[in-house]
Design a protein around this nucleic acid. Sequence first.
DNA 1: TTAAAATGATGACATTTATCATTATTTTGA
DNA 2: TCAAAATAATGATAAATGTCATCATTTTAA
Lengths: 231, 231
Amino acid sequence: MEKPKFEFDCRTCLYRWENFKTLTEEQLQLLCNHRYEASFKPGEIIFKKGSPTSSVIFLVSGMAKVFLEGLDGKSIIISIAKPGMMISGPGTYGDMRHHFTLTSLTDVKACFIDMTVMKQLVHLNSAFAEGLISDISNKSLLMYYKLVGLTQKKMPGRLADAILYLANQIYETDEFDLILNRQELGDFTNMAKESVIRILKDFEEDGLIESNCSRIKILDKPKLQMISENG
Amino acid sequence: MEKPKFEFDCRTCLYRWENFKTLTEEQLQLLCNHRYEASFKPGEIIFKKGSPTSSVIFLVSGMAKVFLEGLDGKSIIISIAKPGMMISGPGTYGDMRHHFTLTSLTDVKACFIDMTVMKQLVHLNSAFAEGLISDISNKSLLMYYKLVGLTQKKMPGRLADAILYLANQIYETDEFDLILNRQELGDFTNMAKESVIRILKDFEEDGLIESNCSRIKILDKPKLQMISENG
DNA sequence: TTAAAATGATGACATTTATCATTATTTTGA
DNA sequence: TCAAAATAATGATAAATGTCATCATTTTAA
């Protein structure tokens, strides 16, 4: 009986990131020899803005929030991380410092891959390098659209965006138990928690959603999309 | 007498981007064989959001504004481009479309380098690839800080940021003839042009700057920095 | 199970900032 | 050089949104 080259977790975890498929068996082995796992309880800091980065991170299971720590203790949630995404800040190829904080929202199992290995793979495999550039570019692109949304849309448009993002990108269903509280929803949409509550109520009264506390159900997606587009 | 390998413009223009210094003579030659130049008058579109990207751009001379076209015809100026910076959107390694527009602010001479050559260089030279990743990462980092500034600072803080950016990064002097008009200053700071005018006047009354029309002179930089930091 | 803590909800009010109308100034081009 | 166009300046007003105080509900942990 042949011994499997990699343990179960490694394969499933890593292979969810498309770009690892460009690697040869040997290169994948190199990667697996330099990976570490850690577990986190909800609300724990996985890495903190300002701390040194020496690895990129993949979630094996669970969800986390990626957020900028802004002025006066206010936060801006950039995105919700779930398994299969590479989480690496712009500091990874710059000043080697984290520029945002990653905090678990649920129980999280995370896989850390040493940056020196990532850089080695960039040298060894140009398809991998190109995939990495592509990944970073796409994240940058999302930031552009986030910037437009947060600065130019009014509150209902921003909140509609958030709900659609959660339904389409994160939960992949139109009814879900929200892991973000109202404050965090505010951090994601750049509004006060009170405003989140008020507009969520408006949406409910207009028959766009059904919401009681953490449960949200989208009732009229086309209308929600219209609000998102018209700001 | 030996014939120089590259014409004057190529060397000076390209070498201003640090990352081209990683190339061998042969690789630089390859690059120079696939570059094109074009001239633009003030206000002309160099490339437009939505159009296909097949090259990255370097300004040989002049300045241009990089801006997102947002909702209702409103713009967000991301940065001012000047010689030595690579201008390539996140679409270059993604959907091959531009996601922002580049417009000349002065007479501009621009140098276009074919993307296929850039990708070839990524394959041939891993130091170049790493430099490219680093460049893209740094731009992404600027976007993070732009997002925090535009969403969390109040108008005086945002305008102070803009003036300091222009003085430190663009003009590299504390007295300069602004090439942006009030509307564009508003597009850069996410405020209405009337608000720009009012706060600029406040700054002048408080002795922070001297400003008549396009000329701006910073009188009290530390105070301006304080306003920038405190939002 | 129950008290404490956290989160959610609501209304009154204040602040920030945009919009609109109008006038002044500067720039541009015949 | 001068009229037209573009840009800048100003004031009044309105809209969007945050803040604060308070109370209700839900969750947590002893």
